[in-house]
Amino acid sequence: MKTPLFLLVLLALAAFTSCSKEFEVPSTPPANLSELRASPDFTWNTGKTVEIDITGLPTPEPVFSTLTISLDDGSNIYQAMHNINTNTRLSVVVPYISDSLNIRFGSNRYTLPVMSGKVVFSFIPVVQD
């Protein structure tokens, strides 16, 4: 009876060992860098890539002007000629702590929150009937 039980324990141990290759965040914070085992998907980057989804405004003819995306300090991180009636997806890299971006089209200005690495914006105003 003892032999099968021993084998079961060995099998369970083997199964545990094979699963342990998957990354798990240690339950206790490491005291220093030598104890740290970082997540494989951690980028080690203090910046973050923000995806900006812009929904265009249907217009009877193209309306071009300068589209500017800037940080809180007014620094332009993206500038381009833009047709307001096109849908656009842009990617910018901003400091990790940036929680909003400024978008300017011509003289029209908008401040938009960065949420989960995305900024979603539509040139079509929201109206409530």
């Binding site: 620094s75 993206y78 500038q79």
Partner: peptide
Amino acid sequence: RAYNSYYPSQTTYG
């Protein structure tokens, strides 16, 4: 030439 787009910003360095 028309536009400047900066990384990481116009006023700072990475």
